[in-house]
Design a protein around this nucleic acid. Structure first.
Length: 262
DNA sequence: ATGGTAGGGCGCCTA
């Protein structure tokens, strides 16, 4: 049994309902995980997505900020929704698919501007969020599981457009990369995207603020697909659909895809 | 060191 999974920070699921529908139509992943829906769950335009074959959804939402959702062609049952660091934010939802695979969808806090928890509370919350993720997977060892989302960290030198310039920029600092590695180690997670595409620069996000995003190409790989070792070997055909960043009124993130043969 | 662009929802927070 084979299925395709995608993760995409949509930056408002209601404003970009049409872009979600376009991705569902043109690429048709079996499971689509969204972050930054910026919508209460009951205002997500579920009916249009159901008309495209995505009959199942698990989600957490709030007005204006954050929000995570999993749309699926196969049945999915909610199994967890954690509020790490007790921020009261909708940043995690987990569901078990009818094929037995558990999917964790995360929107990790961005962390503010200054990479110093003494002067920037948000940076401390980001590090603490990652620490609680680590502890969660230590206490709940994942099996047959996939972890996706906007983790707001680009861990490798070739996950950013300029490693040295970004070492002091939130998303690529050493302390963040170490915290993310601890989460990965705690669940024995395999970075599926980089197992599949080991060499070369790879980005999933380009700032709205930088003009001419495509030519300048000042990107970062903030969006990730991980899997536990029992299914990671079955993953293949990973890709970032960069062209989506160039669609009309786009999200600043491009979707990341992987296929699994179970 | 600063400001640059977006979304939500209407003054300003967040990314």
């Amino acid at each position: 049994m084979s299925f395709t999974l995608a993760t995409w920070n949509i930056n408002s699921v209601r404003l970009r309902e049409g872009l979600v529908a376009r991705l569902m139509t043109e690429e048709a992943p079996d499971v689509l995980c969204l972050q930054e829906c910026k919508s209460p769950v009951d205002l997500i335009p579920l009916e249009q997505f159901q008309a495209l074959g995505y009959h199942h959804m698990v989600a957490r939402g709030q007005k204006g900020y954050n929000g995570v959702a999993i749309f699926s062609k196969m049945a999915i049952e909610e199994v967890a929704a954690e509020d790490f660091v007790s921020l009261g934010h909708a940043r995690h939802i987990a569901g078990k698919l009818e094929n037995g695979v558990t999917v964790h969808n995360f929107y990790v806090p961005a962390g503010g501007d200054k990479p110093n928890r003494e002067i920037n509370e948000k940076f401390g919350q980001k590090l603490d969020y990652l620490t609680e993720m680590r502890d969660y997977f230590r206490a709940n060892a994942p099996e047959k599981s996939i972890l996706v989302g906007d983790l707001n960290i680009a861990p490798r030198e070739d996950d950013v457009w300029d490693h040295k310039k970004l070492l002091k920029v939130v998303s690529h600092t050493t302390v963040e990369v170490e915290h993310l590695a601890d989460v990965q180690g705690a669940g024995d997670w395999v970075d599926v995207t980089r197992a599949d595409i080991p060499d070369g620069n790879l980005y999933s996000w380009w700032s709205y603020r930088a003009p001419d995003w495509d030519t300048a190409d000042k990107g970062r790989r903030l969006d990730h697909i991980w899997a536990t070792p029992d299914i990671a070997n079955s993953a293949h055909s990973s890709r970032v659909i960069r062209a989506v960043r160039g669609w009309e009124q786009p999200s600043d993130h491009a979707p990341v895809f992987a296929m699994f043969d179970l």
